[in-house]
Design a protein around this nucleic acid. Sequence first.
DNA 1: CGCAACTTTGACCAGATTCAAAGTAAGTGG
DNA 2: CCACTTACTTTGAATCTGGTCAAAGTTGCG
Lengths: 251, 251
Amino acid sequence: MKNGKSRAPNRTECAHCPLSKLEAFRRFEGDELAYVEKFKTGELTADAGTTIIVDGAHNAHLYTLLSGWAFRYKILEDGRRQILNYAVPGDLLGLQGSITGEMQHTIEALSPLTLCVFERDKVTDLFSKHPSLAYDITWIAAREERILDEHLLSIGRRSALERSAYLLAFLNRRARNSGIFTTKNNVIPITQQHVADTLGLSIVHTNKTLKKLREKKLIEWRDGGCLVLDEARLSELAGWEHTDEKRRPFI
Amino acid sequence: MKNGKSRAPNRTECAHCPLSKLEAFRRFEGDELAYVEKFKTGELTADAGTTIIVDGAHNAHLYTLLSGWAFRYKILEDGRRQILNYAVPGDLLGLQGSITGEMQHTIEALSPLTLCVFERDKVTDLFSKHPSLAYDITWIAAREERILDEHLLSIGRRSALERSAYLLAFLNRRARNSGIFTTKNNVIPITQQHVADTLGLSIVHTNKTLKKLREKKLIEWRDGGCLVLDEARLSELAGWEHTDEKRRPFI
DNA sequence: CGCAACTTTGACCAGATTCAAAGTAAGTGG
DNA sequence: CCACTTACTTTGAATCTGGTCAAAGTTGCG
């Protein structure tokens, strides 16, 4: 568990938020932008491998991922780890710890990242003053639920090959939609250990399964991650039909 | 898929809601009660086995389970089924379909049940007029997320025996907290097929695993369901530490 | 009584784990 | 710049958990 957190020297103004320029995200209306600007109390950057939120600890903040990748996980006492989900730009982190603020999972940076920081205490104020933003937060929570439902279906009922295909199609799709892929780098920055811990498989079997996807020319493993060559065929192999998303809200 | 839905002849007034008398639930404050009373548009009863919400369909309603048991599931094209979660009194159903209202899972009655019916359209109004209730809804969504996280950890990383122990401890605990157990009947009304489909196991292996729990005198299988004899030891066997919940909100 | 749904058991098989070890790539300090 | 370390990937072999197939037993119900 590294500690590579630091306050960002220069703060991104919400008015110039790179996310709001992307097609995948909705625009702010009326005085929402001004409110969010006030709601945001700071910015944080972290290196890959940095732990952002620790399981069991109280955390007074909520975060929106501004750039980079992160993931959430839980571990059993003997060290078995289950990765629950991944975060890409626009995702809200830390909401699960609602009310008490006591987190029940750990969040770690998968790549260098930037976070917008919000005070948990101020959420009540947001709910009173900006019902539309409150609704967005609920929408975001409901969306995370739908994703977890999909993951549960995968881990519970799909074969190792189907699961792998699902996960990589899923991550590639999310990455494309959140603008995290540049023209130069379309690699999902995960190790095979991450894949294994997400899918409930051993690392050895994961490696053998990914080999099959490689042989089918659906993916390549390179530059410290996974390059998806054919997302559509991965989805098909997994039997996964992703729902088309309209512009999604973010805060 | 049975269709045993029907409008309840007599409607429970929120002022006399049996849930608000239970220790597990929070009380309404100020004019919340009056608002919820208006927000509720009707009541529905259904027999065990009735499908309440169908995957892929649009549903204009939200429901709160007033009495009985329900469960949510998804199926793959070839019929493999994954049960995602169970609902006990006080649980909100249908929120995941936010915005569009298009559901991505099916909800089925596990026992005879009663639902309070709300209009999805009116949620915006609720968010504007009652931030505290809006906050509750978000809290409920975040809580469901935490539960799904636990399930994911179980299915992904626990052995068949641990998984079974976890599920039964979990369901027993939820049942106790929601007042669904009477003094006479403390049986969780599930079949072994339900357990199998929840845990990602085959029914044969599920049966053999449950046998071990029976031999350890942790459970009994009777009266069309599972009687938990020792919830604490089940939790221990699963390596599951449930977090103590304060009074939880409901609508 | 007879059907339908569910539970139980045994035998065999397969997918996935564990163990072991070697190969590869990137990063660090001398 | 090279030797060394660390993290990650790859492969093979043995083992085991859990799946599939098959069939019988049980329970509730019309």
